[in-house]
Design a binder for these strands. Structure first.
Lengths: 206, 206
DNA sequence: TGCATCGGATACAGACTTGTATCGCATACG
DNA sequence: CGTATGCGATACAAGTCTGTATCCGATGCA
């Protein structure tokens, strides 16, 4: 928290984002009025409108924060890859750590996706954000396979879509039936084998 | 549509339910005001409030209608069971016919479930409706196994939960990735084998 | 320190919903 | 037919949220 002669805008947006995160978690996207979010941030709507255009903008800002966290975690997992034992399983287990924050985010983004389905403009914006995140994941997948001395035999973009689908599908089911399925059980169980089948070893030269 | 000296209440509720179905489909649950639903039904809010207490009541009425359709379809499939060839697969394929209406209902009920998560009273009501539907499915599962000359080796209630989870999980993924997965592909592929493993043949006497 | 401007606060107008209280017509019965 | 009442229409009173126009104090540079 920088004090002194600093422009206060960054601090204001940080407070708004923090308040939005908590409010969305408690009351959902629809249930959270801009007014309530601002109150929680200790600000007025004036502050909001001078930083964002709509409540959706605020969501997308949170989306980007979340995406960055995901990417950071995955990057670190790939970087610290231990080639010794079952590296794929290790990476997946690590990426699959689903904490409370992740679960809350999942609920929120599901609600927002349903909202987007009814609002084409929002849907386009969401698709664009999704695309950017997927691009990063493609990059990481490529890096991962490379470090494993393998190269993909299918389109990496499709592969990124699949891992995402498995991640989210598994999460859904574990939320519906918490006692029946661990959050990342499906991914950890099936993805290592699957990644093997959609890639091939690269011949080492020399 | 009965005319003449008939109480008009049934006709009014029918019109409200029909209008609600269409409005919810277009604008979602949150996006549909009671007012708009009534307009679409060619009625005023007076008609609504004299038949329902809240918008949630209306949703639950639709829930019951949908549940009845599901049960009817399943019942018929079990009744017409052809013991000749692969009966399980036949039943599942039949129950798994996911039409446009089913997909719309899935979107709506997902939105409503998220809503219920934030509202304990609603959650309780939803759980109760879910329970009643599951009871019917338990009944049908029992009937199905019986006609196949088998008896369950696990709790039927749990089994009903599982089939539901597979159905919904598969639907989710097929909505996210329509080109990658047919709506009931998972159920048709895995449930027959699974049902075999959780039941045993009944010794025929004589 | 004086001053320009940036950024958050305030005030206002308007759109939408909701729930209730009340009214009046049509229905169904004697 | 006449009449009681069932039931949908109407009117009313809040409450909530949004977006904008405007104000004023803090910030940061000369």
């Amino acid at each position: 928290m920088p004090k002194g002669p600093t422009k206060r805008r960054p601090q204001t947006t940080a407070r708004l984002l923090h308040a939005a995160q908590e409010t969305f978690a408690e009351r959902g996207f629809y249930g959270s009025s801009i007014e309530v979010i601002c109150e929680r941030a200790g600000l007025t709507r004036g502050a909001f409108y001078s930083n964002y255009r709509t409540k959706e903008d605020l969501f997308f800002a949170l989306f980007d924060l979340h995406a960055q966290r995901v990417i950071d975690r995955l990057t670190q997992a790939v970087d610290e890859l231990d080639l010794a034992d079952d590296p794929l399983r290790a990476v997946l287990t690590r990426m699959g750590t689903v904490d409370e924050a992740e679960r809350r985010w999942y609920l929120l983004s599901t609600e927002f996706t349903l909202h987007a389905i009814r609002h084409p403009d929002t849907a386009r914006a969401l698709a664009e954000h999704d695309r950017r995140l997927r691009e990063e994941i493609v990059h990481l997948l490529a890096q991962l396979l490379d470090r494993l001395g393998r190269r993909p035999t299918v389109d990496l973009n499709l592969l990124a879509r699949l891992t995402t689908a498995v991640h989210e599908g598994s999460l859904t089911q574990s939320l519906v039936e918490p006692d029946q399925l661990a959050p990342e059980q499906l991914a950890v169980t099936f993805l290592p084998t699957f990644l093997d089948t959609v890639s091939e070893p690269v011949a080492t030269e020399g």
